[in-house]
Amino acid sequence: MCLGIPGQIIEITDADRLMAMADISGVRREVSVACVATPNLNDLLGEWALIHVGFAMSVIDADEAEKTLEALRGLGEAQETLEAMAEGTAALEGAQ
């Protein structure tokens, strides 16, 4: 829960609410980009960010993203985070 996971910003979904779609290890998940917002949100497209409980907290470079992901996999945290995301989606429907 405490460690962020790298994701790539692929689309701005709601500029007013500062929401974007991120690709996190092949899973698409809408995240908040409030903490890393730039005057023109489109500047974020293609950037990597550390994503923590649904919020992009820090923009990082691609190499750092890869290294971090590897460390998270080693700790089993990457899998845990992806499972938590799936659980979160199921929770919206109340099906858990």
């Binding site: 998940r29 809408e30 995240v31 908040s32 409980v53 649904g54 919020f55 985070t81 938590a84 995301m85 659980e87 979160g88 989606t89 929770a91 919206l92 109340g94 858990q96």
Partner: peptide, 18 residues
């Protein structure tokens, strides 16, 4: 009890909207 495991507080916000 209706307890749901979420990934993000944003999930809880969405549950509140729905």
């Amino acid at each position: 009890a209706d307890i749901r495991m979420v990934y993000s507080p944003l999930d809880a916000l969405e549950i509140a909207r729905r």
